[in-house]
Amino acid sequence: MDVFYAYTYGTAGWMTLQALPLLISPSSVVLSLTSEARQVTDVETYLGRSLGLALLIIGFLPLPLTNSIPLTSSPSTSSETANENSNPYVQPTLFFTLLHHSLVAFYTYTRYNTTSLNGFIFHSVISGAFAAVGLWCVLFSQDGGHIGKRSGQDKRMSGFPFGGKSAEKRKKKAME
């Protein structure tokens, strides 16, 4: 499985895991965040369920936008699966999910520093891991490179900071 698709499925799963307690029992989530015991208001219940629905929809939205779940009923050809950049929504979706995971990781880490509750550091580590995988996808996963048919190496390699001795020998031989 491609790392990019694992990232989109993982994002959907992680956001669903966050949304379920808000949808099932928002009062228990509100009570766990307050220090004193009190009655949960209807507004807090409404906002908790609304946030749960928003997390659920935003979590599953990257799946069709990045071709993780195909929207067509016809089977895809090998050229469509090889070129995932053909969908114009892949890069923006990847950027905004990366931004979301990064901001949530930063926020939960700062909350952990002020409250010292272990739940915040757990959430920060998971969101930070998703942000790191998303950054990896932005940097390396979207472009297949220019792989040579004979050598199997990427032709865009510059040799910096290490010189390609065999490539230099071939260049000298070709010039002679």
Results as ranks from 00 to 15, higher is better:
residue 91 Q to W: 14
residue 88 P to M: 13
residue 81 T to H: 10
residue 141 S to V: 02
residue 82 A to G: 13
residue 52 G to C: 08
residue 67 N to M: 12
residue 101 H to G: 02
residue 83 N to W: 07
residue 138 V to T: 01
residue 105 A to Y: 13
residue 50 S to H: 05
residue 83 N to V: 11
residue 93 T to P: 07
residue 50 S to L: 15
residue 136 W to D: 12
residue 98 L to T: 15
residue 66 T to V: 05
residue 51 L to A: 14
residue 98 L to R: 02
residue 114 T to A: 15
residue 139 L to D: 04
residue 127 S to D: 08
residue 122 F to D: 00
residue 92 P to D: 07
residue 91 Q to S: 14
residue 62 P to G: 04
residue 109 Y to N: 06
residue 70 P to N: 12
residue 128 G to A: 03
residue 75 P to S: 10
residue 60 F to K: 08
residue 101 H to C: 03
residue 82 A to Q: 11
residue 118 N to F: 07
residue 113 N to D: 09
residue 90 V to Q: 12
residue 59 G to N: 05
residue 50 S to C: 09
residue 123 H to C: 04
residue 64 P to Q: 10
residue 133 V to N: 08
residue 132 A to Y: 00
residue 132 A to W: 02
residue 134 G to A: 00
residue 52 G to E: 00
residue 71 L to V: 09
residue 114 T to N: 04
residue 69 I to H: 03
residue 60 F to G: 15
residue 107 Y to H: 14
residue 104 V to W: 04
residue 49 R to I: 06
residue 122 F to H: 10
residue 132 A to F: 00
residue 120 F to S: 07
residue 101 H to M: 05
residue 53 L to K: 07
residue 107 Y to L: 09
residue 137 C to Y: 00
residue 98 L to P: 00
residue 84 E to P: 10
residue 68 S to N: 09
residue 128 G to I: 00
residue 108 T to W: 03
residue 68 S to V: 13
residue 127 S to A: 03
residue 86 S to T: 14
residue 83 N to D: 14
residue 129 A to V: 02
residue 64 P to W: 08
residue 95 F to Y: 13
residue 50 S to T: 14
residue 73 S to I: 13
residue 54 A to R: 07
residue 92 P to K: 10
residue 131 A to C: 03
residue 96 F to E: 00
residue 51 L to G: 12
residue 89 Y to E: 03
residue 63 L to I: 11
residue 102 S to V: 03
residue 85 N to Q: 15
residue 53 L to M: 10
residue 86 S to P: 00
residue 51 L to M: 06
residue 117 L to T: 09
residue 58 I to T: 13
residue 56 L to C: 07
residue 70 P to C: 06
residue 133 V to T: 14
residue 98 L to S: 06
residue 51 L to Y: 01
residue 126 I to W: 01
residue 76 S to P: 06
residue 94 L to N: 06
residue 112 Y to Q: 06
residue 85 N to C: 15
residue 134 G to C: 01
